[in-house]
Design a protein around this nucleic acid. Sequence first.
DNA 1: AATTTAAGATTACACGCGTAATCAATTAAT
DNA 2: ATTAATTGATTACGCGTGTAATCTTAAATT
Lengths: 124, 124
Amino acid sequence: MIELSKAEFEVLDAVWINYPATASEVIARLSDDKEWHEKTIKTLLSRLVKKGALSFEKQGRQYNYTPCIAREEYTLKESQSFIERFFNGHIAPLVSGFAKSEQLSQHDIDELKKVIDDWEKQQK
Amino acid sequence: MIELSKAEFEVLDAVWINYPATASEVIARLSDDKEWHEKTIKTLLSRLVKKGALSFEKQGRQYNYTPCIAREEYTLKESQSFIERFFNGHIAPLVSGFAKSEQLSQHDIDELKKVIDDWEKQQK
DNA sequence: AATTTAAGATTACACGCGTAATCAATTAAT
DNA sequence: ATTAATTGATTACGCGTGTAATCTTAAATT
């Protein structure tokens, strides 16, 4: 599995919004939430390329970056390893923890029900 | 929030099994799964103390370590920040990702249903 | 009493990460 | 044609982490 740092993921996340994307586009997308220096973001883009999370094509003197993995794929892998580490591979205890600490809204519950519904339909 | 590294968490996890626990007990508990050197584990115990995750009492020349936080409390915080980072604070998409990739067993579904049931009962 | 052992304290060290600054080269502007 | 600006490449640097080795001191053994 490609291992990304927190900051690297956030940059990749900005590319996922819409790609291919140039460095300046990524910098623009991040400028609202982050106080990162332009140079910092470019460093992170390079590291993402080096790690195989981004590819690029030259367009004049700029690069057009494209993710090498889908967001869903990456977050699934991360979720698996998270749940493995903290809950021995079982997802229910995580949800249960949220429930106990009153972190769940009716909306969350509805969404969860739908997930379960869909799962059961698909079983048949 | 106390920030623990992966290795630190695994050592703390071995203390949570049963405490107070001496260094040798922790080392013994970890020896099955891990190839860690005894010195490595002691380093991690010290770092956990320094970070305020463990406290200890002297017992002769040994220390008796006790966690300063409950496992549930720690994993809840970690889960929150994980779900915030990857799923914008919503838990259902995580579960949904598992479902789509066929990571859910009937048993998981049953447990999730129970969590939902309990939540709804408690709402009334 | 002297010596060995063992526990925790201190030190070590390379690598990844956050956070840029500087360098080199090419394009845009004058 | 020069010069200025901008892009990606390279270099920097302190801190955390994984992974111990060495040091110090007190207890256990002989």
